[in-house]
Write a protein that binds this DNA or RNA. Structure first.
Length: 588
RNA sequence: GCGCCUGUAGCUCAGUGGAUAGAGCGUACGGUUGCGGUCCGUAAGGUCGCAGGUUCAACUCCUGCCAGGCGCACCA
């Protein structure tokens, strides 16, 4: 519709150019926007305001000329000048009605558009270290990544969802020794558990399982284990000392266990990863690939990634270390890929991983990151550019933590003490639907307050409930219809759409027609919250309508037309919720 | 100290350079309660953090300041 209006304005301006001998430069795009309220019509354009200065004409007067030069269109009811020189368009009601037929015809495809043109998009999200269960912060990333993926897919992109498993490195070693030490504890050994170890109860559970699988195969005497290991820190803030302590234990573990170390290492990883996979699957969050960092290092991909950078000339050696010139691409300092001690940094394997993404032919790369990692973005962006990706084909949307509240009371969380609320706990308490929707309701890169009480409540204050209720209510109307022995007749309804004259009906139809644009907006900005807000407003308009008018009326034509309208509403709620991962129960 | 993000109604938050800055909740009145738990109306409530600048037009873009959050490893 916007395009049609732009076309109409363009030809009107052409005509003016000739008749009034005007010369002016058209802007690239003639702006058409939805009006804020029906009193300004359905659409408005600011074109007269934009051109007024060039032409030295008062905007209001210019707008009048443009309107006079517009050719009559049957889909336009009227066109007016308003305010400082806006041109307001009023669509004829038949044009408005058309949306109902469109929705019912296109059903689950209504709103889908091919703006992606099949571009291959790689989106990586969550990718939490497999050192423990997912917590509520990861949950928000999961909900966000899944919704963005589905929205992009629905708008014509070819989306590949991937989870990068950081299954090597120090954190994993610390996990391994944490499990092992709890295992030794279960074997009756006595010692102080390292401050830097993973202290959660799940570690003990894994240790117990390890013991039941392997008996005391990995049992070593505590004195032997801690022999030569530097003392642990005496307070939490002595980072260096804590790390020295755990690092030494890792070395001892490898010495004492030999090849068995790998078994312990893998055992913990497997259990935690299985838990993460199950958790996400239950949350309705799916991936095409679980990509292992270990696999990357095994097949020499890291060297390939480094080689790729070297060939492009962005590497140099300094003080025995290998550096990447990320400052060439706006990073604040160059970054080390290989340390003086010969070890590769995490960044090196991350470059390899991203190089691998490019090699697989993805044209758009999206890394969903926790907001606390924002400092990491410039160097990854730099690497992607160095490797030849267009800057605008790389996106790193940030996801902020949610602050949990139980009513007024804030729920305190600290990762350090292992005292965090897990995603599973949250889902169990408030349900998948509310968890998903609440996460997506707010712009992802902003802090949000997540009220558990509200999320659980079966009241209209709860937006998820409110929208689901609208859907269920519509289902209920159709059930009621059957009980009354009346049949829903879509073709009669569609032929009678012109009888939908109530302001509520007009408003609903107008809003339904905005759904496709809302989807595009979400897709192009990677912002699913627009869709959540849209659905809330749609439900609101529906409830208002429901309370103002009866659908099942004696006038057959009117009745069927109204049923068509609410059926369209039902369809759009469904389409939107599918993309957000929220269910649409028919009864509540 | 440097960098990034955020500052909009009592609260939670929307707001693609446009018209009188909005919604929900909360507050104060009033009206409706029969498809399902309602909904509707009215009012109060704002120097859009502050100050400049760009523009016909700024909550929106730019600069500076103030406040809050996060990040600043040859860690991952």
């Amino acid at each position: 519709m916007k395009q049609k209006l732009q076309q109409a304005l363009r030809s009107s301006l052409d005509r003016l150019k000739k008749s009034k001998q005007l010369s002016f430069q058209l802007p690239e795009e003639i702006q058409i926007e939805y009006t804020r309220s029906p009193e300004f019509g359905d659409f408005a354009s600011n074109i007269a305001l934009v051109l007024a200065k060039q032409l030295q004409v008062k905007p209001h007067e210019l707008a009048q000329w443009i309107i006079e030069a517009l050719s009559a269109e049957e889909w336009l009811e009227k066109v007016e000048v308003a305010g400082p020189g806006f041109i307001n368009f009023y669509l004829s009601s038949d044009t408005q009605n058309q949306v109902v037929a469109d929705v019912l015809k296109e059903t689950e495809n209504y709103g889908r558009k091919d703006i992606g043109k099949g571009q291959r998009v790689h989106i990586e999200y969550v990718s939490a270290n497999p050192t423990g269960p997912l917590h509520v912060g990861h949950g928000r990333s999961a909900a966000y990544g899944a919704a963005v993926s589905d929205i992009l897919q629905a708008t014509g992109f070819n989306v590949h969802r991937e989870y990068y498993i950081n299954d090597v490195g120090r954190q994993m070693d610390i996990l391994a020794i944490s499990v092992w030490l709890r295992y030794l504890d279960a074997c009756g050994e006595e010692f102080d558990f390292p401050r830097n170890g993973y202290k959660g109860d799940y570690i003990r559970e894994i240790a117990v399982e390890l013991k039941s699988h392997y008996g005391d195969r990995f049992h070593r005497i505590a004195e032997e284990v801690f022999n030569g290991v530097p003392k642990d820190a005496t307070s939490e803030d002595q980072e260096k000392q804590k790390e020295a302590h755990t690092d030494a234990i890792v070395v001892r573990a490898k010495e004492l266990l030999g090849d068995d170390y790998k078994i312990v290492h893998q055992f913990g990883l497997n259990i935690i990863l299985a838990d993460i996979k199950e958790d996400l699957a239950e949350f309705g969050v799916h991936y095409q690939t679980w990509f292992s960092e270990k696999a990357l290092s095994v097949d020499g991909a890291i060297d390939k990634g480094i080689e790729a950078l070297r060939k492009k000339g962005f590497l140099y050696e300094k003080e025995d270390a290998l550096w990447f010139q990320s400052t060439q691409f706006g990073d604040e300092k160059d970054r080390v890929l290989r340390r003086a001690n010969g070890q590769l940094t995490y960044f090196a394997s991350d470059i390899a991983y991203h190089w691998n993404k490019l090699q697989r032919g993805f044209e758009v790369i999206i890394d969903v990151l926790g907001a606390d990692h924002h400092g990491y973005v410039p160097r990854v962006r730099a690497a992607m550019q160095a490797l030849g990706l267009e800057p605008k084909a790389f996106y790193a949307p940030l996801v902020q933590f949610a602050i949990l509240y139980r009513g007024e009371k804030r729920i305190q969380m600290s990762t350090r003490g292992g005292k965090f609320v897990t995603l599973r706990e949250l889902r169990n308490e408030v349900g998948n639907d509310a968890t998903r929707f609440f996460y997506l309701m707010r712009k992802s890169d902003q802090h949000m307050d997540f009220d558990l009480e509200l999320a659980k409540s079966q009241s209209n204050d709860n937006p998820v409930y409110y929208i689901q209720y609208a859907y269920a209510r519509i289902c209920s109307v159709f059930r009621q219809l059957r009980e009354k022995g009346t049949l829903f007749n879509q073709s009669i309804g569609l032929q009678s759409l012109s009888s939908l004259k109530e302001s509520h009906e007009q408003a609903l139809m107008n809003y339904l027609s905005r759904y496709p644009e809302t989807l595009s907006l979400c897709a192009l900005n990677l912002e699913p919250h627009h869709l959540a807000n849209y659905l809330k407003e749609l439900a609101n308009l529906f409830h208002t309508y429901y309370n103002a008018h009866t659908f099942i009326v004696d006038d057959e034509a009117l009745c069927q037309a109204r049923l068509c309208l609410i059926k369209a509403v039902q369809q759009v709620i469904k389409n939107g919720f599918v993309l957000l991962g929220v269910s649409t129960p028919e009864k509540m």
